[in-house]
């Protein structure tokens, strides 16, 4: 287990980050902290992907000086996936933030449980 863990150090870190982000998003009452959790969770996945695409000793997959051998470059697909994922997570974060602003304007608090309590009192 020891040497395996050391060889996959980055992946282990990204898993720990994923758990931290997931727990934050699930358990925190504060909406802003939830969104921070969301971003930690998504970034950890991108870290994981980027690590998986990297091959030691190979360079960026842009053909220069006519070198076309596969052995020269790293795998470009995970980088592409990371880019797509970032776009998705940015749009989702923007949506969450806009919802948070609306809730804050209405109830002057960021605590989701408090908001639910007030909604029950309003009895809509």
């Amino acid at each position: 287990m020891g040497p395996n863990l050391w060889a996959n150090f980055g992946e282990a870190v990204s898993m720990i980050l994923f758990c931290i982000g997931f727990a934050n998003l699930l358990l925190h009452k504060n909406l802003i902290k939830k969104i921070i959790g969301l971003n930690i969770m998504d970034s950890s996945i991108y870290l994981f992907l980027a690590l998986k695409g990297y091959i030691n000793g190979h360079t960026v997959p842009i053909v220069v000086d006519g070198v076309q051998s596969v052995d020269a470059y790293i795998n470009p697909i995970p980088s592409g996936l990371v880019l797509t994922g970032i776009v998705v997570s940015v749009s989702v974060t923007a949506l969450m933030l806009s919802l948070t602003i609306r809730l804050y304007r209405r109830y002057q608090t960021l605590d989701l449980d408090e908001i639910s309590k007030r909604l029950k009192k309003e009895g809509l």
């Binding site: 998003l25 949506l95 919802l99 948070t100 809730l103 989701l112 909604l119 309003e122 809509l124």
Partner: peptide, 21 residues
């Protein structure tokens, strides 16, 4: 109204946890 925005936030949180996994 307040209810729908709160519902949307709760829906988003659950969905985002799911899509993270």
């Amino acid at each position: 109204n307040g209810r729908t925005i709160e519902a949307a936030v709760r829906y988003m949180i659950m969905s985002l946890l799911g899509s993270g996994l």
